[in-house]
C-alpha cells in the first residue's frame, strides 16, 4: 500500500474552461485530488466528463484555467511524466524500436543505450523480433504494446494512461492489462490510469476515483483493498471485488443517468 502522506501531485480547486467559438464549456470545476507517490490510481467517469482533460493537464498538454496544481518532485534527470495515449499515437514514419526509444532520444541518450533500454521493454511486452517493423505492419494490440513500452522506457516519475486499451478486443485487453501490472509491480511508478471500465479500474488500481458528469469533479474515492499480485481469473469472484464493483457502479449510474436527463432536456 502506498504511503498516504507523501503526495506527488496535489490539485486544489482546479478548473478548466474551453472556449468554443463564442460559448464556454466548463470541463473541470473545483477539482480536488491528491495523488500519492507510487500508487496506481484509476479514474472512472461517464464519457465526456473531463477525465482526459484532467490527464492532459497533468501531462502539460493543457493549462488549467484556475486553481492550484502542485507537483512535488525531487531533483532528478528523469522526465516528469510520460503518457500512453488513447488510440494510435506511434509515429508511422519510425520503426518500432525508434518509436519505443523516442523519449530516450529526446533526453539525449546515445543510440546504443536507448536501443538497449527500449529493446528490453519491447521484449517484456512480447515484441521481440519486431524492432525493425513499421507500425502499419503491426496489429492494433501490438501497436499499443509499443506505446506502453515507449512510456516505460523513458523512465518518467509519473505514468499517465488515457484509456490505453479502450480500442482493443477483450482477449488482447486482458493480456495487456496483465503485462502492464507485471511491469508496474517491478517499477512501482506513480500511475494515473483513465478508463471507463470498472473491471479494469479494480483489476489495476490501488484507488479508484469516480468523477461526476461535466463539469468534472471528484465524486468519490474508493480504496481497492485487494492484495497484489492480482490473479485476473480469480479476482472477479472475490467478494471484495464484487462489493467494490457494485459500489462504483451505483456511483457511476447516478452520474450517467443525470447526464442522460440533462442532455434530453
Amino acid at each position: 500500500m502506498p504511503c498516504h502522506d507523501t503526495y506527488i501531485i496535489k490539485l486544489e480547486n482546479v478548473s478548466k474552461v474551453f472556449k468554443l467559438d463564442s460559448s464556454y464549456i466548463k470541463a473541470l470545476e473545483d477539482l480536488n485530488l491528491s495523488i500519492y507517490n507510487g500508487e496506481f490510481l484509476c479514474i472512472v467517469g461517464p464519457s465526456g466528463c473531463g477525465k482526459s482533460t484532467l490527464l492532459r493537464i497533468l501531462a502539460g498538454l493543457e493549462e488549467h484555467t484556475s486553481g492550484n496544481l502542485t507537483i512535488k518532485r525531487e531533483p532528478s534527470d528523469k522526465p516528469l511524466n510520460s503518457m500512453v495515449f488513447q488510440g494510435d499515437s506511434l509515429f508511422p514514419w519510425m520503426t518500432v524500436i525508434d518509436n519505443a526509444s523516442y523519449g530516450l532520444k529526446m533526453q539525449g541518450v546515445s543510440k546504443k543505450e536507448r536501443y538497449e533500454i527500449a529493446g528490453e521493454y519491447l521484449s517484456k511486452m512480447g515484441l521481440e523480433g519486431f524492432e525493425k517493423a513499421y507500425p502499419h505492419q503491426l496489429s492494433g494490440g501490438m501497436r499499443q504494446r509499443v506505446s506502453v513500452a515507449r512510456a516505460f522506457a523513458s523512465d518518467p516519475e509519473i505514468l499517465l494512461m488515457d484509456e490505453p486499451f479502450g480500442s482493443l478486443d477483450e482477449q488482447n485487453k486482458i493480456i495487456l492489462q496483465q503485462e502492464l501490472l507485471k511491469i508496474w509491480e517491478e517499477t512501482r511508478k506513480t500511475t494515473i490510469f483513465v478508463t471507463h471500465s470498472i473491471d479494469e479500474a479494480l483489476l489495476l488500481g490501488d484507488r479508484v476515483i469516480v468523477m461526476t458528469t461535466i463539469p468534472g469533479k471528484v465524486k468519490s474515492v474508493i480504496e481497492v483493498n485487494l492484495s497484489r499480485p492480482r490473479d485476473f481469473s480469480e479476482i472477479r469472484s472475490d467478494s471484495t471485488f464484487i462489493a467494490l464493483y457494485q459500489k462504483i457502479w451505483r456511483e457511476l449510474r447516478e452520474e450517467v443517468i443525470s447526464d442522460a436527463v440533462k442532455t434530453n432536456l
Binding site: S82, D88, S89, F91, G103, M106, S154
Partner: peptide, 20 residues
C-alpha cells in the same frame, strides 16, 4: 496526436522539425 506525443516526450523545437 503526433504533436502531443512530441511535446509530452520533451521534443525541443529542432527535434520536433526533424522527427515529426
Amino acid at each position: 496526436i503526433y504533436l502531443d506525443v512530441a511535446k509530452n516526450y520533451g521534443a525541443g523545437k529542432k527535434e520536433f522539425y526533424l522527427t515529426v
